[in-house]
Simulated assay, not measured.
Amino acid sequence: MSLKENFEKYLLSNLINVESFHPYFNEALNYMLKAGGKRFRPLLLLNVVKAYEPLLLKNSYPIAAAIEFLHTYSLIHDDLPSMDNADLRRGYKTLHKKYDETTAILVGDALNTHSFYLISTAPLSSDVKTKLSYELSYNGGIYGMVLGQAIDCYFENKILDIEKLKFLHIHKTAKLIAASLKMGAIICEKDEDFQNRLYNFGIDLGLLFQIQDDLIDSLEDEKSAGKTTSNDTNKNSFVNLLGVDGAYNEAEKLALKLENELNSFDKNLKESLENLLTEYIFRHRKFMNK
């Protein structure tokens, strides 16, 4: 089985189950995890571990799951009526549409906190787990994703310049992607310079990922995208600021930069990341028939 298939099997075998007389809370906790997804962030971590310490792959699955749990919480809250008010996610009804808004808020809270439970109970050294908790909380919290979301929501219907737009999306999207790569290097106990090199690569990758998502929102229908689209008309997106051609050009510049950096990695890391990243680095090209 592929790394993605193995991780998917692990994730579905380790869903949350709490003793309770609530009629559907356990079902709701796992609803969006079972809905699938690219598993992009956990696979970044696992591919770094595969490159350098393949014997630690099994021990790293809980950390990869923690990243996916945190990411999934952010999607559930992002879809809420007070934020994007989306109806569709991963081809399924969003959680507040499937159940109710209260359930969606509580499930998001639960997945957020449970991600740190998964790190704390993983079969890794205490020192490594402390560093992993720091990276996930720093990049997923007020210094990263939460700050980005706050800026995104506050500045709806207010146009930001390109530098502020990048600041927004570096925090909202890119930092968790960058942290996923860095956390893989932490598990392998690579030196700080290398960790930071991977992190910076991840920031560029996350920005590219966001520009491509903006193109998807603008150019794809809901069925193709598997989520609510044409939902960014009031938001600060790269397409809204630069137009479709401008957003494509920004994506292409980042893609070529990332391709060069990927080619500069050592053989093990390049081979491990190449199959995963090649699919995403140039996915914007399909929108422009190029």
Rank of each mutant, 00 (worst) to 15 (best):
E250Q: 13
H284K: 08
E53W: 04
V49P: 01
L15H: 07
A104R: 02
A86Q: 05
N260M: 03
F69A: 05
I162D: 10
G144W: 13
G37S: 02
I216C: 06
G141W: 10
D193M: 01
Y154A: 11
S272F: 10
M1Q: 12
L165I: 12
F155W: 10
I177R: 13
Q149T: 08
L165H: 07
S60Q: 09
K50I: 05
C188W: 11
N196F: 05
G141M: 06
S74M: 01
F287N: 00
S20P: 06
A225D: 03
L56W: 06
F287E: 00
L56T: 05
I105N: 02
F238Y: 15
E192M: 05
E252F: 03
A28H: 06
S2Y: 08
P81F: 02
V107S: 02
L165A: 08
S74W: 04
N200F: 15
L118M: 10
G140K: 03
L165W: 06
G184P: 11
N289F: 07
G206I: 11
A66P: 07
I177L: 15
L273K: 11
D221M: 00
L70W: 07
K38V: 07
L70T: 04
K267L: 05
N26E: 12
N275H: 14
K4V: 07
L254D: 03
N263L: 13
F265M: 06
I170V: 13
Y280F: 15
A247V: 09
L132V: 07
D109Q: 07
L242N: 05
L219N: 00
L70V: 08
T228M: 07
N268F: 02
T121F: 03
S264C: 01
N240I: 03
L80W: 00
N6Q: 15
L46Q: 06
S137D: 14
Y154Q: 04
S218I: 04
F209E: 12
K286N: 06
K182R: 15
R285A: 08
H169L: 03
G91Q: 03
T94C: 03
E250L: 12
N17L: 14
I162E: 14
A247E: 03
T233S: 13
A64R: 12
D84L: 10
G243T: 01
F167N: 12
D84V: 04
T278K: 15
A28R: 07
P54G: 09
F7A: 04
E250Y: 06
D191V: 00
M288V: 11
K182H: 08
A66T: 11
N26V: 11
K50V: 03
E222V: 01
K97G: 02
L111T: 02
A255G: 14
K4S: 09
F155C: 05
L273A: 14
D127R: 00
E163W: 02
I67W: 12
L3I: 14
F238Q: 05
G108Y: 00
V146I: 10
L11T: 01
Y24L: 11
K235T: 10
P42M: 13
S230A: 15
M32K: 00
G36E: 09
P123W: 10
L57E: 09
